[in-house]
């Protein structure tokens, strides 16, 4: 019996409010950009079927709110992630500075089995703005940071123009798949079996 893990790949998109997480997800899944996306409240996800090495996978892409005040919600959403996408806005220094926090927060809350090798992908978004003239974080700086964190793959994207979005998500899917397969060692097929009765017997539920 094939494990659920093999077909469903869970990806979490994190980053400061307004860096373009929702826009990137929609550009990738629905191939469109809209000025009318609302600020994300709580969390939501989109799914997309991807084919890889002749196998079909469902990519489940989670989009969460960027405001730090809502981070305590993360614990409910991060668990079981196969890949984490960190997004910043190349025109906003703080969004880049915060990447480290997002990464650490994710590792704490998601508690992947092998944090050292957990796959991240970094996206520097909104490269289209003002023809690149308002940019404050250089590609070099971003790549240096990625290298220092264990060679995180890096892409410069525009959700608006659809630049590099497809390419980035291919790498995201590939890395999620790799981590998903490694996790199978720890996650045998017994995922739901026998857990219900135990759960029922547990004590306080508040």
């Amino acid at each position: 019996m094939p494990s659920r893990r093999r077909t469903l790949l869970k990806v979490i998109i994190l980053g400061d409010s307004g860096v373009g997480k929702t826009s990137l997800m929609n550009q990738y899944v629905n191939k469109k950009f809209s000025n009318q996306y609302k600020a994300t409240i709580g969390a939501d996800f989109l799914t997309k079927e991807v084919e890889f090495e002749d196998r079909l996978f469902t990519l489940q892409i989670w989009d969460t709110a960027g405001q730090e005040r809502f981070q305590s919600l993360g614990v409910a959403f991060y668990r079981g992630a196969d890949c984490c996408v960190l997004v910043y806005d190349v025109n906003v220094q703080k969004s880049f500075d915060d990447l480290n926090n997002w990464r650490e927060e994710f590792l704490i809350q998601a508690s992947p089995s092998d944090p050292e090798n957990f796959p991240f992908v970094v996206l520097g978004n909104k490269v289209d703005v003002d023809g690149g003239n308002s940019r404050v974080v250089s590609e070099k700086k971003a790549r240096a940071w990625c290298a220092s964190k264990g060679n995180i793959p890096y892409f410069e994207t525009s959700a608006k123009e659809g630049i590099n979005v497809e390419e980035a998500f291919q790498v995201i899917a590939k890395n999620a798949l790799k981590s998903g397969e490694e996790e199978e060692i720890y996650l045998p097929d017994t995922i739901d079996v026998g857990s219900t009765s135990q759960q029922r017997a547990s004590g306080c539920d508040c």
Partner: peptide
Amino acid sequence: RTLSSLELPRSLAKGSPSSSFKGT
């Protein structure tokens, strides 16, 4: 961090031996 009882992925935590003291 290891596969500690609390921080397992949600789907597994319920059935894993390390968290089975819940409701024993």
